[in-house]
Design a protein around this nucleic acid. Sequence first.
RNA 1: GCCGGAGUGGUGAAAUUGGCAGACGCGCCGGACUCAAAAUCCGGUGGGGCUUAAACCCCGUGGGGGUUCGAUUCCCCCCUCCGGCACCA
Length: 849
Amino acid sequence: MPDSRGTEPQTSTGAEETAGRGYPFREITRRAQARWREERLFELRDPMKADRRFYCLNMFPYPSGDLHVGHGRNYILGDAVARVKKMQGYTVLAPMGWDAFGLPAENAAIANQVPPADWTRRNIERMKKQLDAWGAMFDWTREIASCDPEYYRWTQWIFLQLYKRGLAYRAKGAVNWCPSCRTVLANEQVIEGRCERCDTPVETRELEQWYFKITAYADALLDDLRLLEHWPEKVRVMQTNWIGRSEGATIRFPLDGEGAPLEVFTTRPDTLLGATFMVVAAEHPLITSLIERGRLPREAAAFVERLKRSRVENRFGVETEKEGHPTGLTATHPLTGAKVPVWVANYVLMGYGTGAIMAVPAHDQRDFEFASKYRLPIVEVVRSDSGTRFDGTAAVEADGRLVNSSPFDGLPSEEGKRAIVAALGKKGAGEGRVNFRLRDWLISRQRYWGAPIPMVICPTCGMQPVPESELPVLLPDQVEFKPTGESPLLTNEEFLRATCPNCHGPARRETDTMDTFVDSSWYFLRFLSPRLETKAFDSDAVNRWLPVNQYIGGVEHAILHLLYSRFIVKVFRDMGLIAFAEPFERLFTQGMITKSGHKMSKSKGNVVPPDALIERYGADTVRVYTLFIGPPEKDAEWNDRGVEGAYRFLIRYWKMVEDFIALQPVKAPGSGPTPAWAVSGPSRDLRRRVHHLVQQIGDDVDRFHFNTAVSGLMQLVNAVQEYQAAQEDMRAPEVAEAIDLATRLLAPLAPHTAEGAWERLGHERAVAEAPWPKFDPKALEADVVRLVVQVDGKVRSNIEVPSGSSQEAVRKAALADPKVERFAQGKRIAQVVVVPGRLVNVVTAKPAP
RNA sequence: GCCGGAGUGGUGAAAUUGGCAGACGCGCCGGACUCAAAAUCCGGUGGGGCUUAAACCCCGUGGGGGUUCGAUUCCCCCCUCCGGCACCA
């Protein structure tokens, strides 16, 4: 159950203890945030003006009430990316909004009699404060909430556009019903037979519902995955599996005594001659028709009833034991004319293909098990080239050459498929076909807190769309929230009463609302013109800024939201509203943060709230630790000790800056003429180390390796500290440069601390606007290089040679090394491998056997 | 069953193109400071052998094999874990 109570920091005494140590993070944080707000650094004023654009988007959250540190990872990553891009000279759009419709608000209303709108608004305010506390600089001038009439008006408009194009339709069929949420669900919202939201086992019901025809885009959704080269492979694979394209054929078997033939789908038309019986699903129309006419044998009819009942309870229950009964019908093989029996069985599903199969027991394990149990004939029709052949103990699902399939004997499987499909085509008994696993998107919900579907039902004209000029169809406030499971909209007579747009007679309003995934399937377009009153979005601005350059969110949306958004964008493209085919250029799916080995959840009581941590250590500590915890795409376990480590690092950084300032009059380092860099000695070495790290950190950030970027910054601070500990000159320009570089590199990760330091260092403009550091290739050069020396691939020694030494010189130096002499003693040297700048490997000849 | 991904110290992890395995943290051990503790600072920290010590040697990235001068990295087989799909015809 959602919980609107805020999590206030409990310990203020502990905070007082640790706030000291010369690192006044509270003051620093307050000042920095005030400054960014005042200077409006992260607001996009005119979308049409920017040249170098970067659209960085976090998946907008459902306002459930409280964020935990796991959510924080998402926003910290996005904020870090946005800040880096800004420093790299891009105009950055980083907006935020609220996926604000949904069931928890309505459940809270039923439980506490609080209107969902109020509950949602309160949570939004609370979560906004939390996001601000992290220092995430979203452009709040573009904030949107999907529950605002000015937003859902356009969600309804989208519905009407799809309706007009035949892409939204109402149909009756078997649907998923969650008895706890009291609503239907899309296939995508059913996980292992359970409701994605509440984990209740889903039931099957026959209901008339609204669908979006996503299957019309099945091919495009699959093909365009190839364009998404910057998406995680995992997500593309998941979508590929979900769409589930398979090539095969439909084949029609005439039925004795029936008008219509029995149509099946198969991926293996080459095995047609091995089809010895047919099987249909219990829900197949043929079965329904036979029952209605009283022609299904009593045993089979009883079986069908039993099966249907069990599937209503749980359609996804594991039915391991295959069971079936003859229907009494006989089909005619379309090529041989042989008579084959038609069975009804539990292992064939109505939801895939045609709900009927031709059974080829020799080459399909399921058919084989069934045929074995009921002693049905088995004919081998494919023999693999490797000699594996059907031996009567198990099905052989291999490619090979056709046998027992006159006149196709000897053909390889692939050719056999073509030949048999061609033969069927000639007789009008079948044709090649592509089948998809993807079903149409069921979008209607029997709930209140969602965008009303803009349709009215007229007793004379039937289903009629609400004219666009009458949008939005407003959700009424005056409804009753009762735990009856009925939609609260049914309790408002005024809402229900409508006028037919066609005949202007009295009509009844549709009371279903839309799946909240419809709301979220287009919100990224709205951010470019969040207050536009005449259109859903501004096509020019959208074409200029999209696809989203970097999208960041949880992998749990790999199928649902990401597939739906891709679909809606393709529809808009076909409507001529936008000029691109895919909404998200780059996708990053961050890993979950666990605590005590589990996903954080209120029911498990293992939620780590950010508030007390931020109070105690500061936002930057939480940010740095979150980034340092591990590779951001992998799950990670939260460790309070690790937070201390991040805090210590920031204290050391701050002390380094303060020590530096204390030593000399404050002037902005990096400004003025280029200093004369030391050509040798400790300052030179410091500079080399620092620039190596600048290079490494830059690469890390580009590759989303924020964990190693943090480690690189730690090393940078360590380098200065070691330099200082060695009593070297802290007034050297190399130190000033190191501190300047460290501060700018730190700015996206620990922005408040970096901003505070930058100010202390005498800069006028914010570090958030400072240029992203580049390393100086000259600084990386060295007079001597240290090479690893191996003997037979094992590290034995190190040598130092002047940079740019010839291979021959390196070879000589290596061979002269005492350790090499020792290990190569008494052996003939067969080869010396010199890898410039890296190593030397002295290879000795193997002793003669 | 099919399809992905992963397996490295006590622990989170690092190693960009095949080139010093364990960077950077956490923890732990020892020391300094302190009446004491906390905090901080310094040193050590993969396993084993040998040694008074230093030096030195061997082993080591889930297991087995291979390619290569050289493999955490590439190839083959196997094991384990995680994720997705699943009587999908």
